[in-house]
Computed example of a mutant assay.
Amino acid sequence: MILVVGATSMLGSRVVHGLLERGHKVRVLIGRYSHLAVSNQGTAVTIQSLVSAGAKIVWGDPKTETSLTSALSDIDTVITVVNTARQWGIDAIESVDWHGALNLIDAAKNAGVRRFLMATIPADGLDNHERTRRLNEEYEHLLVRSGMTYTIIQPTVFMEYWVGMMVGIPLMTQQAVTLIGRGDRAHNFISEQDVANYFVAMLDHPKANNQTVVVGGPASYSWTEIVHRVRERINVELPIQYAMMGTPISYIPEKVYPLATEFERFENRLDFSDVSKTFGVRPTSLDDYIDQAFGHCRAVIYSTL
């Protein structure tokens, strides 16, 4: 049986559904107040949807030994996709994610878990990259020392979250897109569904054993290029305005704003075609995401004009 931690996130729920579709037995560890956190993030994930899909629920606090002991009973594989940075900011990576992962790795080792997969943030390019790189190295060190077969998956930038916030919110509210700085640094974007597919594909793939694998989408784009692509794909006016670093943007949460500014500090133009081919994951293109996420917006916007 597989235990998934972080299953009420959009990524976590996709991992759960992907595993169940492959015939795996899945248990999810859910905190007592997870339904409130999910509701506050405005996502469509519900605990009932996981149960209806076939997942077994165990309630508890992932930070407590008692909860983990119960959740890990008869578990062969652990998958954790906990990521609090998008809700609580970059500092939460160390204060929350690190301590939770530390407890989970230790408990999984003691429970005799064979396989451990986790998601972390790539360190390259982040302004605080030294701290993030150190944490990633410590994750790997702990997993090596645990004796479990491990895979650390490091996704690039999530399309659904970042494009949905930076472009989707102003699109739906009929206001200008505000870009920080010049908006011309290119970044690789990946769909959360593709990341979930990588988790499922790497579960028993020999080339994923005891590896840290960075995964990404098929191309890199600047924010300005993304806005132009949205304009072209759904044929709407979408003005752009530029703001200096440090200028608040109304639709970006205060705790997330420091992460948003990181896009102007570096760029990455990475090629993930070999990774995609190795694990058999067909990447979602930016155009496919735009059509799926914003294709309905044209009718909605035109109907209000």
Rank of each mutant, 00 (worst) to 15 (best):
M118E: 07
L72P: 11
I290Y: 01
T120S: 14
D184V: 02
N197P: 00
T151N: 12
Y257G: 03
A208M: 07
L238P: 01
V78Y: 07
S220N: 09
M148G: 08
I180F: 06
T120L: 09
N235K: 10
N197R: 11
R145I: 08
V38I: 14
G18S: 02
S191A: 14
L117T: 04
C297S: 04
A119Y: 03
R131F: 03
R298D: 00
Y257D: 08
S67E: 08
R229K: 14
C297T: 00
D127N: 12
A44C: 07
A260R: 06
K63L: 13
K207E: 15
H141L: 13
R86Q: 15
E140H: 02
N83E: 09
A219P: 00
S73M: 12
S70G: 00
L286G: 08
G12T: 12
E264M: 11
E65D: 14
N103T: 07
T69P: 03
D127V: 15
W88F: 15
P170N: 02
N110V: 05
G42A: 06
Y161H: 15
N110F: 02
L142D: 10
G112Y: 06
E237P: 01
I90N: 11
T156R: 13
G54A: 06
E262N: 15
N268Q: 09
A108K: 07
G12N: 12
N197F: 00
G6Y: 09
I57E: 09
N210D: 10
G23L: 09
G168F: 04
P248A: 10
I75A: 11
F189Q: 04
L104E: 04
T212D: 00
L305W: 00
F116L: 05
R22H: 12
Q48L: 14
R27G: 06
N136R: 02
A108L: 08
L179T: 01
F199S: 04
S250T: 13
Q48G: 10
S49N: 14
Y302C: 05
V281R: 11
I252T: 06
M244D: 15
S9Q: 08
E225L: 06
T84I: 07
R229F: 00
P258W: 12
Q87A: 15
S222H: 02
S250C: 05
V177F: 01
P122W: 07
A201F: 06
V281D: 12
H99E: 12
I252P: 05
D127T: 15
A53R: 07
F263G: 04
Q292Y: 02
R22Y: 01
F266C: 13
R14L: 14
L29Y: 01
I90A: 13
M244C: 05
R114N: 10
C297I: 01
T156N: 09
M1H: 11
L19P: 04
T132I: 15
N188G: 03
Y33L: 09
I190H: 02
D204N: 15
G280L: 11
L19K: 02
T149S: 11
N128L: 11
S34T: 12
D184S: 03
L179S: 01
E254H: 12
D74K: 13
N210E: 00
E140D: 04
G147Q: 06
L270A: 13
R115L: 04
L286Y: 03
L29F: 01
G31Q: 10
D184N: 07
M244N: 13
P239V: 03
H296C: 00
V157H: 12
L36C: 04
F158Y: 15
H228L: 12
I180E: 08
K207H: 13
V256H: 10
D124E: 13
G295S: 03
